[in-house]
């Protein structure tokens, strides 16, 4: 096969399985780190990896207008691009309460996040995304270095426009990984969007054995 790979739509089930496995190991690393930090037992579901059309992207989070929390890291190294970790507000609230050791009933879902809570969310996003990247790096041999994270709490459509635009340069689809974890009866569902720069697709695909 030649190197003219130009979108995730060329993926078959095997490639999805590889990405799922990377997501699984990455999330596993992340949850272990989170469990140590909290000193609690945290369970995780097998991540779901999907290729979505733009029109379907905002639907996974309900309405494009709904407020969500996005933590983004730039990626440098053999592969460049960015990775986005996304949570809806109630999941973010549950996560903050988990981190701060607070009762879920103590805060309404729509309460604003304090500065320290925003910082805690940013750090959690950082741990999760970095763990995902280190799994990718270990499995593929691609060297990647994440930047410091940045956080945005805004409309789902607005935050998702960042990965959607990058994917939009290539085609009509995006790659999305859903991670679900729980502590006791608190469930948190988060989404990862891995966004390689155009020049880095070849690197990633070659490492995954899609093209060679």
């Amino acid at each position: 096969m030649s190197g003219n790979f130009n979108s995730f739509s060329n993926f078959n089930d095997m490639h999805l399985d590889i990405l799922k496995e990377i997501g699984n190991i990455g999330s596993g690393n992340a949850i272990t780190a989170l469990a140590k930090m909290l000193n609690k037992k945290i369970d995780m579901e097998v991540p779901k990896v999907k290729i979505l059309k733009f029109s379907e992207v905002t639907e996974i989070l309900g309405c494009a207008e709904n407020p969500v929390v996005g933590v983004m890291l730039a990626i440098e190294g053999d592969m460049t691009g960015c990775i986005l970790f996304l949570l809806d507000l109630s999941a973010a609230r549950a996560l903050v309460n988990m981190l701060m050791g607070m009762d879920n009933k103590a805060m309404a879902d729509n309460a604003e996040f304090s500065e320290i809570e925003v910082s805690a969310l940013k750090e959690t996003g950082n741990i999760l995304a970095s763990s995902y990247l280190s799994a990718l790096s270990e499995l593929t041999g691609i060297k990647v270095y994440p930047s410091v994270p940045d956080i945005s709490i805004d409309m789902a459509g607005a935050i998702l426009s960042v990965p959607a635009i990058e994917f939009g340069k290539l085609g009509e689809t995006v790659l999305y990984i859903e991670t679900e974890f729980s502590e006791g009866c608190t469930r948190v569902v988060g989404d990862f969007f891995l966004v390689p720069d155009i020049e880095s697709y070849g690197v990633l695909m070659r490492a995954l054995g899609v093209i060679w």
Partner: peptide, 9 residues
């Protein structure tokens, strides 16, 4: 006409 959640778009 409406469009929801414009970011960089």
């Amino acid at each position: 006409l409406t469009t929801l959640g414009l970011g960089s778009c």
